[in-house]
């Protein structure tokens, strides 16, 4: 429809349009909210011109404040500080998604099981965890942690390990989401495949391992990457219980330099670039496998 309805000269692909638009938006924000004061910049002109341009000393002061607010980002140390946060964000997200895959496969198979006493509890578990806000899961796991630690004296849990609590909560949540993706992936395969494998004398487990799951995983790679983007965003919730990831380091910066607008803008741009790149890679993979039937990437809608 887009092509049908447009007669404009914009012949860019949809992706390029979105990237261009986002970059324009990102560039506009600092001007919109006075992070780069235009009138302040004009005060760099000779003072004699000020009255004609309607400039006052206040505008010059605004420029000074803006310069002070941006100054931390001229220093290498600030970027190193944020890079450590990005590393934590990526590490926690990676560990969570990797841990979730085997669990999600099991949950998907359990949900497809022909035994109702396996199927129903799995469905109930998946639906309940999926209905919980991620933040609640994080807090619940975190608070249960210190309790379990008191009872068992486990040294891994005992140190009030924020990182581990966030990883467990995110793994739980990602498991139930991926379980649904994997289930859909298995269902999208031709029934004939299983039957063919079985008729070749493979057991059910062998058919799964050798025929069904490899194909499923190839198909669901794009939605898995989309889920990874969600995870990268969700990791920011760990900041609320003190996980030193990207957003939390941003908080520490603006609490120190008192420049929340500028710092949050920078942190948002970092998240955007990382997630945009991930989204692009998902699309490339999707295109590569576009010969086979595929499952649409879900829109990731978590915080």
């Amino acid at each position: 429809m887009q092509q049908g309805m447009t007669r404009s000269r914009f012949r860019m692909s949809e992706d390029r349009q979105a990237l261009l638009g986002a970059l324009i938006l990102i560039a506009l924000l600092p001007f919109l909210f006075g992070m780069i004061p235009i009138k302040g910049l004009l005060t760099l002109l000779p003072v004699a011109w000020w009255p004609a341009l309607g400039l006052t000393v206040e505008n010059a002061e605004a420029l000074q404040i803006a310069v002070a607010n941006w100054k931390p980002f001229l220093e290498w140390g600030t970027w190193r500080f944020l890079a450590l946060g990005l590393a934590m964000t990526v590490a926690v997200s990676l560990v969570s998604i990797v841990l979730s895959l085997p669990l999600a496969t099991l949950a998907a198979l359990a949900r497809l099981s022909s035994h109702s006493y396996v199927r129903w509890p799995t469905i109930a578990g998946i639906e309940i965890i999926r209905a919980f806000p991620v933040l609640i899961l994080i807090f619940y796991v975190f608070t249960q942690f210190s309790r379990v630690a008191e009872v068992t004296g486990s040294s891994l849990l005992k140190s009030n390990n924020v990182t581990l609590a966030v990883i467990i909560a995110l793994t739980l949540y990602t498991t139930v989401v991926n379980a649904e993706t994997i289930r859909a992936g298995i269902l999208s395969l031709d029934k004939g495949q299983t039957e063919a494998a079985r008729s070749l004398g493979l057991s059910y487990a062998q058919a799964l391992r050798l025929v069904i799951l490899p194909q499923t995983f190839r198909r669901i790679l794009p939605p898995l990457i989309a889920q990874f983007v969600t995870l990268v965003k969700d990791t920011s919730l760990g900041a609320i219980i003190g996980l030193l990831e990207l957003y939390h380091r941003g908080q520490i910066l603006y609490q120190y330099y008192r420049n929340p607008l500028e710092t949050l803008w920078v942190v948002a741009v970092i998240y955007f670039l990382v997630n945009y790149a991930l989204g692009q890679s998902a699309q490339r993979i999707e295109r590569r496998f576009s010969g086979s039937r595929r499952i649409a990437s879900q829109v990731s809608l978590e915080p």
Binding site: Q17, G21, A22, L23, K233, D234, S236, F272, N275, G279
Partner: peptide, 13 residues
């Protein structure tokens, strides 16, 4: 651009 930007940043921000 609006959609692309807000879809890729955390709500917390």
């Amino acid at each position: 651009g609006y959609v692309e930007f807000f879809r890729n940043i955390p709500l917390l921000i």
